[in-house]
Nucleic acid binder design. Structure first.
Lengths: 207, 207, 207, 207
DNA sequence: CATGAATGAGACTTCATTCAT
DNA sequence: CATGAATGAAGTCTCATTCAT
């Protein structure tokens, strides 16, 4: 279950409000300079809090990183969920989901890169939790793959489902973490090539 | 071209020898604790040099990281080259190359993960160079894709070649950087699923 | 006379009540962790008050220490007084007083140790006052010594009376502040050896 | 056995030299302001070292306190040893030893007070060691008491020896830790009263 | 009177880097 | 070339105290 970051402040509303400030400032700074080169003082200043105030809402700098990762995942999941097709089924639904996910990646590429680069600095327990979030996304696709297999619109060896779900996710995320390699490529092209490759790999009867 | 790391020592042999010590120690430590949590003192001690000596062969801690990344890439390329089929052609050759590359990833997963996690700490110029190395690997596959297209054993839209090369590389590297997600999967299964997916995506006439 | 600790609260009853809470919590904490390692927040929480409330009844952390020392002395004096023999005279009365005092030390050894270890952290004026309290105890014995000298049951050089009073007090208190050295010794034995030594030193005609 | 404080510096001579500087500066400061109110920066500056240099010879502020306590005890023991009578025996020897010890206390009263007030801030292991040193002094007197008992110049119940040794030590140390109470008393008077009391308590046949 | 969030100075410690020897 | 002691800036975090509500 979601690890909780303790705060010495009681009022939950305040906590939400202040942490929002902290997270927003930290995301920005971590993106620009990375976790290690960002100082807690900078985070305090950028979030409009005093040095001490930050530590009323967080117990360590690593807590902030965790909060940031958590927030990013939350945002990814929200966006993904809101884009998921409700009507389509089977292969079509999967394809829509891929496109939805890729769109989210495009939108949040900075944040996704951030997680790729900095989550390793999390304390073990926090890292575990962040990876669990990551798995959550993968599971969305596992479910779609299973469903497609079931209704015959996909033809995938059942034991390949987990790996294929990983492939889908990574194929999208690489738009973020290999950005440097995609100079000449437009997102739309990227999206369609990846989708096609993946759908084919899933044994989609139609494209 | 390969950025050079300056040294105050003249004798090139000494440089090679000492840097080898430094790199070896640093790779080990970076793998265990990451770049930031490793101190230069630790590197000095682990490499059998004095604090000062390290700085005779290197100008900063980041130089060491660069050297380490460089060495890893060098090793990857060597191994890959030595495994590349000389005889096969076209689709078959590509497939062999994939398998070769995946094998290298399996062998060097710790190091590949290291690059994924730490290269962002490199100074801009060094990072650029490391990315160039990364592209080098991708280009190997670009060439194979082009050749396969040419001899008709592959059928890939020419403009998709760069992206597909990236896909090949990332599909292999994920064995390293998503290790946590591959608990139940054996490398052989991973390898064959990935290969098949990629070959299909390249329009390989046969498997 | 007794330094007064200012309070922004008027109602004296409230003051007494709240300060009791504060003192009780603080004694406990100071005993466990010492003055410096105890935070005012801890004191607030342990006393059931808010951070702010504590500062309505006290002006600084050192005030609390002063209150604590004061309370301990008060308790020592009360207990001592209640144990002092009303009937006996001269040497006998002195002896009873020693035994009474030693008994109080045994009972309050933690608190006496606390004063020994922490009173140095008091602001000068407060320290002076605490030392005055300490002298009060000594004076009890000075009076008894003088009385014993007067009725001939003791034979002590008059100029040695203050020092001998100190000796009596310290000989008892060491049961508290050198506890670590008294592993094998039972309190009763300690008490009788000390008493005998001191009575002899006072030139008690009988024991 | 004497706990060792680790240092990252190899050269033992340097260690001795620098630690001497540190200890000297720290003793001074601790006496003036106490352990807690003294900052490591102040110690660094007063010892003529840089902030960082201090931490090459010591691992924490508490190490410094330990070193200080250790040094004081060492000095006490040296001085005591050098003053101990070689010729006298039995009761006489004991008396000389008391006078010697009291003289040392007078000389080092500031330092002895320091130990009384600050040793409680030591980490458990260090404290244990410091108390062991304290016991060492006590044992000197235990041996003298035993010897006096043996040659008939003292008449003390054997089971009272440890406690009496404590009494001797405390009776001297109180000159340091109760200084505030000895305003009117000259050291010589103090010394002779204490000695007489203690000798009598030891059943010394002659004075 | 009470609350508890906010402040901010300042504490201890680390560590990349330098330089006299 | 090598050593390793020295530097000192900078970082994270704590906590007594205040003050708006």
């Amino acid at each position: 279950m979601s690890r909780t970051v303790p705060s010495s402040v009681k009022n939950p509303e305040k906590i939400r409000e202040r942490r929002d400030q902290i997270i927003e400032a930290a995301v920005q700074l971590f993106r620009e300079k990375g976790f290690h080169k960002t100082t807690t003082r900078e985070i305090a200043k950028a979030s409009g809090l005093s040095n001490g105030a930050v530590y009323e809402y967080v117990q360590s700098k690593e807590d902030i990183l965790y909060l940031v990762c958590k927030r990013i995942h939350q945002s990814v999941e929200e966006q993904l969920r809101s884009r998921l097709s409700e009507h389509a089924r089977g292969a079509t639904r999967l394809k829509h989901a891929m496109e939805a996910f890729f769109g989210v990646v495009e939108l949040m590429k900075n944040d996704i890169l951030l997680i790729y680069q900095e989550s390793k600095s999390l304390p073990r327990e926090f890292l575990r939790e962040v990876l669990r979030d990551e798995e959550e996304v993968t599971k969305v696709f596992e479910r779609l793959l299973t469903a497609g297999n079931a209704d015959g619109s996909l033809a995938l060896a059942p034991e390949s489902i987990p790996l294929m779900a990983q492939n889908i996710v990574v194929s999208g995320q690489m738009w973020a973490f290999r950005r440097w390699a995609f100079d000449g490529i437009a997102f739309e092209q990227f999206c369609s090539v990846q989708t096609e490759m993946l759908m084919q790999a899933c044994g989609a009867v139609d494209a």
